[in-house]
């Protein structure tokens, strides 16, 4: 299933709805790259609230989404990492290496607003 990407003013909001396969995660990366250019987005929120597992592949892909979109001129923030998922990530030694995170969509949008000044 393709992750829906909503447009809100100068932001894109990708809202993951269920567990994703590797291909679906890579599709999300490609869709965000394309739409960031097409809509001249300045900020992107990736909402992972519905992800019940964050393994090394998912973390790596989210990290590359953040870094790639940054190179395209859009700030990216990952929101909604669940407590159990956070604990597993720490045990596994996964980090998002500098890609900002926020509690939820609301905080993510507030973060982007603050970045825009």
């Amino acid at each position: 299933m393709r992750v829906p990407i909503l447009r809100q003013a100068k932001y894109l909001i990708a809202s993951i709805q269920s567990a994703l396969s590797d291909h679906e995660l890579l599709q999300l990366r490609d869709d965000l790259m394309e739409q960031t250019g097409r809509y001249r987005a300045r900020g992107v929120v990736v909402d992972v609230t519905a992800l019940d597992v964050m393994d090394s592949f998912a973390a790596r892909t989210l990290r590359s989404i953040g870094h790639l979109l940054n190179l395209r001129g859009a700030d990216t923030v990952i929101v909604g990492i669940q407590p159990d998922v956070a604990i597993s990530m720490v045990q596994l030694g996964l980090t998002l290496e500098g890609v900002p995170t926020a509690l939820d969509l609301e905080e993510g949008l507030a973060y982007l607003d603050a970045q825009m000044g």
Binding site: S56, F57, D84, I87, S88
Partner: peptide
């Protein structure tokens, strides 16, 4: 507990991959 279930699911994901 749900935390352990998530930890196990994550480990399964790694060996399956």
């Amino acid at each position: 507990p749900s935390t352990d279930a998530t930890v196990v699911a994550t480990a399964i994901s790694e060996v399956a991959r």
